[in-house]
Design a protein around this nucleic acid. Structure first.
Lengths: 144, 144
DNA sequence: CTGCTTGCAAACGGTTTGCATTATT
DNA sequence: AATAATGCAAACCGTTTGCAAGCAG
């Protein structure tokens, strides 16, 4: 089969290809992200790394996640007043966030399809992205 | 002309009607809000009050704006990582925010009309509100 | 006179940074 | 060896809070 040798399927490989030094800390952080494959905060990633038996400072987790977000390997989501979430899924989609417990869930990607165009016509604004966050109560919190 | 005596057109009057003690600090804050009639941060309101020759602590501004938001007289908007904005316009509408200078502008209220229903069908989620924030660069920042 | 409101200053929580040390390439 | 990444602790910034003093109703 013909496969371009410059394609790197895993996150770790893509980072290596970008010239990233793959320190044990970065390996552990990337492993935690691959394992979760979901919205995670810096603290959650840090906890997961520690639980895995590795010692990484929270500052390094923050720096690493921010760098990954800056290069488009993660998407940073600021939902409400709580801490930032880093989304493993970088495809365009939106979220619902629970006002009570802060839970973050995905919304159908078909929703809000025509919105981007509409925004670009607003005040000569140059649109880079859209953050659509519905807030309310998740099923669990609404039940009690 | 027939006008109900229980209707209070001004913000100050509505607050009085709710039993709020109209201290000089609150009068000054409300005056600043009425004057701006726009998105303002706590700091901006504080500055405006000081410029008007009144002495109000920043803590009081924060407490007052939060209370007004809690009673629906302002809408709190969290756009991106910057500080919260308090929106004088509480009617449903959305925003565009500049990644460079943080400027916040309104978006056509017709946009995103069907979104709320869609969200309410997501995971049994009970929707209280929607924050739709487009980000990118405003005309001024895109020009330089 | 009652108790809500204020101001201060300190605490707070998430995040970033300066700098000396360490480790990858 | 050269250079990039780490850890620590302190700084940071927006926001909140505890408590004594003040003032509106």
């Amino acid at each position: 089969m013909t496969r371009s040798p410059t394609r790197h399927p895993s996150l770790a490989q893509r980072l290596r290809a970008r010239g990233w030094r793959m320190t044990p800390q970065r390996v552990a952080i990337v492993a935690a992200l691959d394992d979760a494959r979901a919205h995670t905060t810096a603290e959650q990633v840090h906890d997961a790394v520690l639980r895995g038996g590795h010692r990484v400072s929270l500052a390094t987790v923050y720096n690493t996640l921010s760098a990954l977000a800056a290069m488009g390997e993660l998407r940073e989501v600021h939902a409400g007043r709580r801490s930032a979430a880093f989304d493993y899924n970088v495809d365009p989609h939106h979220h619902v966030v629970c006002d009570v417990c802060g839970a973050l869930a995905d919304l159908d990607p078909g929703v809000a399809r025509g919105l981007r165009l509409a925004a670009s016509q607003s005040n000569g604004f140059e649109v880079h992205g859209v953050e659509v966050v519905f807030h309310g109560r998740c099923r669990a919190c609404a039940a009690r």
